[in-house]
């Protein structure tokens, strides 16, 4: 009887592992919908790692299962296995290959991070249009932290921005304050809302601050998250790409009702957004509390 050549088996196994890995990595519905320019960048990077990871997973787990079955003790056999203490080229192989993979992933993650605008936060202060400022209580303590930084104006130096090359001035700047257990959004023209409303396709800057403890501003559909830190302004810069109603989630433990610290991020068409702005401008025109007065010029 003709034996199936080992090389053929290896080839078939290799093709199968590749196909399964590609399917798991590229086709499984793991993520919520993509609603920002950054979302596809994150997803594609994750799916690349998932593809490589699945291949690695199948190979290692497969080896474990095959070895466990093939090399189980036969009844009555009390002898030891062949003394095989190592193999330099094999060990070099499984040191170097993962090293190369992680170096490629590392370089690629810098690339993805740059495209996401990770190097941009506060980096172009002359271009950032400050329609509004972060909540004043926070701003006053913002620059007492590092002596080296204290000469700078109270500009967020931490955050995630958009692609620097494409980053023009923000079309809309919103101040976001986290507090136990709500988000407050301050819009230009004095609009204050408990929800985030933004127009689709426009550059939006969020100046994020916290009034009591650390919170974290997260919109899963945007794939963006930035902590709101007391005493330290941060920012997020994004372009929403899809009209819809998405959750804003607090991702940093902030107290007993941390899980309830949720609101909506509504991405409007441009006309809808204009309508929302004008309705709210009228509704909020006479400020009826002193808290609001601070923000009205």
């Amino acid at each position: 009887m003709q034996q199936v050549p080992v090389s053929l088996l290896t080839l078939v196994a290799g093709v199968l592992v590749t196909l399964v890995s590609l399917w798991v990595g590229q086709a499984t519905p793991l993520f919520p919908e993509q609603a920002s320019e950054q979302a596809p960048l994150v997803d594609n990077f994750f799916r690349l790692m998932l593809t490589i990871g699945t291949a690695l997973f199948i190979m290692v787990e497969g080896a474990i299962v095959i070895f466990m079955v093939k090399f189980r003790q036969k009844p009555g056999d009390e002898t030891d296995g062949e003394p095989l203490e190592g193999n330099l080229s094999l060990e070099a192989f499984w040191t170097l290959v993962p090293a190369i993979i992680v170096i490629i992933l590392g370089v690629y993650s810098v690339q993805v991070y740059t495209e996401m605008g990770g190097f941009a936060p506060g980096g172009l202060p002359e271009m950032a249009h400050h329609h509004t400022h972060p909540a004043p209580t926070v701003e006053m303590v913002a620059h007492q932290e590092g002596a080296g930084m204290s000469a700078m104006p109270p500009q967020a130096k931490y955050g995630i921005g958009a692609n620097p090359s494409e980053r023009g001035p923000a079309d809309l700047t919103v101040s976001v304050s986290g507090m136990q257990y709500a988000w407050i959004f301050n819009y230009p023209d004095g609009i204050i809302s408990g929800e985030l409303h933004v127009p689709v396709g426009k550059r939006v800057q969020l100046n994020i601050s916290a009034l009591d403890v650390i919170h974290s501003f997260w919109v899963p559909q945007f794939r963006l998250k930035q902590d709101a830190i007391p005493g330290q302004p941060t920012e997020l810069f994004f372009v929403a790409t899809r009209v819809g109603d998405y959750p804003v989630v607090c991702a940093e433990l902030c107290g007993a009702y941390h899980g309830g610290m949720r609101t909506r991020a509504v991405v409007h068409t441009e006309e809808d957004f204009e309508r929302w702005v004008s309705e709210n401008r009228i509704a909020q025109a006479p400020p009826d509390s002193e808290g609001l007065a601070i923000h009205l010029h």
């Binding site: 290692v60 070895f67 090399f71 060990e91 040191t95 992680v102 590392g106 993650s109």
Partner: peptide, 30 residues
């Protein structure tokens, strides 16, 4: 970025251990 790269590097010596244990199974009488 610095800590992304350093974190990924930890995977290499960890992988060396995992592969070493799996290879120990090979040819054993388990």
């Amino acid at each position: 970025m610095f800590f992304t790269v350093s974190t990924l590097i930890v995977a290499v010596p960890t992988g060396v251990k995992i592969f070493g244990w799996v290879a120990t199974l090979w040819g054993g009488k388990i």
